[in-house]
Design a binder for these strands. Structure first.
Length: 431
DNA sequence: AGCACTAACGCAACCCGGAT
DNA sequence: ATCCGGGTTGCGTTAGTGCT
């Protein structure tokens, strides 16, 4: 992973006295002075990484200040990190931890026992840092950041659609979905390549494109399998045509027929994204295929529960078998902070969600059936190449979920999930 | 030809960030 | 504020290579 500066800054700030952190909220000079202390703490012996210190060194280099632009970014992250540490002091433990473990790559042997491979996630325990309070209390912090209290919360996870239709009993479902998306994109490719389309005349198949029928799977595969040469730096690479962004990316040698190609008015990527929009109150045909799969009993019975388990870490504490040796707490932590152009900090109250509270809130809903419902309002009210769902437990909306492509159309789209305001309220009332 | 090993590739999952 | 892609890493699959 690229090293997330806020995590290293959090680790370093975790050792600062509360009063200094509080003063930094209102005094830019104090705030500025904390940078050196945080860096020193991060470099010190109480921030631990696995042998080799790959993560620790990565963090240290991620928070260097080679220029003003870097400084602004790092300081903004420092504001969010300070917010998160203050939140930790308030809601987890008012003291200073004896040690902080970084979990970016390999986990230190002291905390390796908390690493859990479960529910299709190598790190089901998604702690970014783990605090240690002697004699035997460990607290995992999953750290997120946002600039202002009013800013949208970052999504908790993204998971590819394909992760929810794995296994031997869903072979048919997978191949049905595959055919559906191949036919859909084949239609897009054909429309782009025939006269009037944005890629007219740039590629060919062994058959005349105009005569291919995208609804016939053999023809569709010919279109789907089309490759083009993309020039990237000095290299020319073959990529799936559907992933081309625009004619400008093509290697000149890759042009099959440039002569009569009209200059495209719209890049191919925009053309494809337009085809993924739901317009006129009608769900986009590609996504409606995905929705159909989601509604199949074999899928729907597990999809919602799998999302809940993964996003909310509902089984994290149950999966641990370390209770005789150690206490383990887990908090979803959202530091709120940024700096202005003069590096003056604005540090808000962090949002701290205790996994215990999530579990209690979910327990009150445990008997209610989970289901995914298309969020028509969000899906149709905007002009975007994606669809929105709400995951309900009974009548309570628990997760807000977005399904969209992310850079590649040959890969599966991904779910992006966050907690609904309603469920946040329920979590808080559980105290 | 058939097999074993390796290199290359593609996809998913982390982290958001740039563009508009 | 919203949209949608980037960088990076790791893993699983496929393609390629060399050996018997």
């Amino acid at each position: 992973m690229a090293y997330e500066p806020s995590e290293g800054l959090y680790a370093g700030a975790a050792f600062l006295p509360t009063v200094e952190l509080m003063n930094a909220k209102t005094d830019p000079a104090v705030f500025d002075s904390l940078y050196a202390k945080i860096l020193q703490n991060l470099q010190g012996n109480n921030v631990l990484d696995a042998a080799g210190n790959v993560t620790k060194n990565g963090m240290i280099s991620a928070i260097q200040l080679p220029n003003d632009a870097a400084k602004k970014k790092v300081y903004a992250d420092m504001a969010a990190a300070i917010s998160a540490v203050l939140g930790t002091r308030k809601d987890v433990n008012p003291g200073i931890p004896a040690r902080v473990y970084l979990t970016g790559n390999k986990w230190h042997k002291d905390v390796e026992k908390f690493k859990i491979n479960a529910y299709g996630m190598a790190d089901y325990n998604s702690s970014d840092v783990i605090l240690f309070f002697p004699p035997k209390t460990y607290v995992g912090i999953s750290l997120k950041k946002k600039p202002m209290t009013t800013a949208a919360s970052p999504t908790l996870i993204n998971n590819a659609f394909s992760k929810f239709i794995e296994g031997p009993n869903l072979t048919q479902v997978r191949s049905q979905l595959n055919d559906h998306r191949i036919k859909f994109f084949a239609g897009v490719i054909k429309e782009a390549c025939v006269p009037g389309g944005p890629l007219q005349g740039i590629a060919s198949t062994k058959k005349d494109i105009a005569k291919l029928n995208p609804n016939n799977i053999q023809d569709a595969k010919l279109l789907w399998d089309m490759k083009v040469d993309r020039q990237k730096g000095n290299k020319i690479e073959k990529i799936a045509l559907i992933n081309l962004k625009g004619e400008n990316e093509l290697s000149r040698d890759g042009l099959i027929k440039k002569a009569q190609a009209a200059p495209s008015q719209m890049s191919f990527r925009n053309f494809v994204n337009d085809k993924l929009k739901s317009t006129g109150g009608r769900l986009n045909p590609l996504y409606s295929g995905f929705l159909e799969i989601m509604n199949k009993p074999a899928v729907s019975n597990t999809l919602a529960d799998a999302l809940l388990t993964r996003v909310l870490k509902l089984n994290l504490l149950d999966e641990l078998n370390t209770w005789k040796q150690a206490e383990f707490g887990f908090f979803l932590t959202e530091g709120v902070g940024t700096v202005d152009n003069n590096l003056k900090p604005s540090i808000g109250n962090a949002n701290m969600v205790n996994i215990h509270s999530v579990m209690i809130a979910m327990a009150t809903l445990s008997k209610q059936p989970a289901r995914m419902e298309l969020d028509k309002q969000k899906t149709f009210a905007r002009d975007a190449a994606k669809v929105f769902f709400t995951l309900y437990k009974g009548k309570t909306p628990v997760l807000e979920i977005e399904l969209r492509y992310k850079g590649s159309f040959t890969a599966m789209p991904q779910f992006f999930a966050g907690i609904t305001p309603e469920f946040k309220k329920l979590i808080r009332s559980g105290f």
